[in-house]
Amino acid sequence: MENSRKKKKTVTRRAFLQSLSGGAVGAGVASRVLGKEPRSIQSGPGEMEVFSSKRIALTVNGKKVGFETEPGETLLQVLRDRLRLTGTKRTCNRGECGGCTVLLDGKPVYSCHILAIQAEGKDILTIEGLASGDKLHPVQQAFIDKDSYQCGFCTPGFIMSSVALLDKNKQPSLDEIKAGLSGNLCRCGNYQKIHAAVAAAADAMRRG
């Protein structure tokens, strides 16, 4: 794991699946495979550290938090169950819908598909850390101004993906907005207003 982490700057879905030896998909599998005693197992491209529980520290919204984590515990579980940062939603819990999107060193990731230990040493930004005090991030303000939510459940994930998109691309076209948000699903079907919010936020951010 250490090696692959050094080689790759972020944990991709592909790398994560490969690290679980291809077929073993899903975070719950890890704990069953690994057992209680610390040991090492050969798992495809790299070697995986095995433990029953481990103390780690995460940097979440600029604050360092330390806690015991268990193998197989996802970043989503840690954010919600341990840190009570419930703005990150458990929606599909299988890496398909983007409802649990957070930024890991500025890159959008599905927190249900990343183990907590994989996020160690990285900057994690959740929806709760986006505003500065009472001042909303321009993307948050644009979602209000454009009425870009219905039930509002997928909204935090969409906002985090939008923030990441606008960080890379200051003036995205509609097609680029759609591509940037293609990993997020809205079941109410509010896409047009979401796209309008991202365009409005881009304008606002360019104006400063």
Partner: peptide, 17 residues
């Protein structure tokens, strides 16, 4: 604007889960 807009966009709107 919806009165719950700010809660939704800041992730502080609490759903049952």
């Amino acid at each position: 604007p919806r009165i719950d807009g700010k809660k939704i966009v800041t992730g502080t709107a609490q759903f049952t889960q």
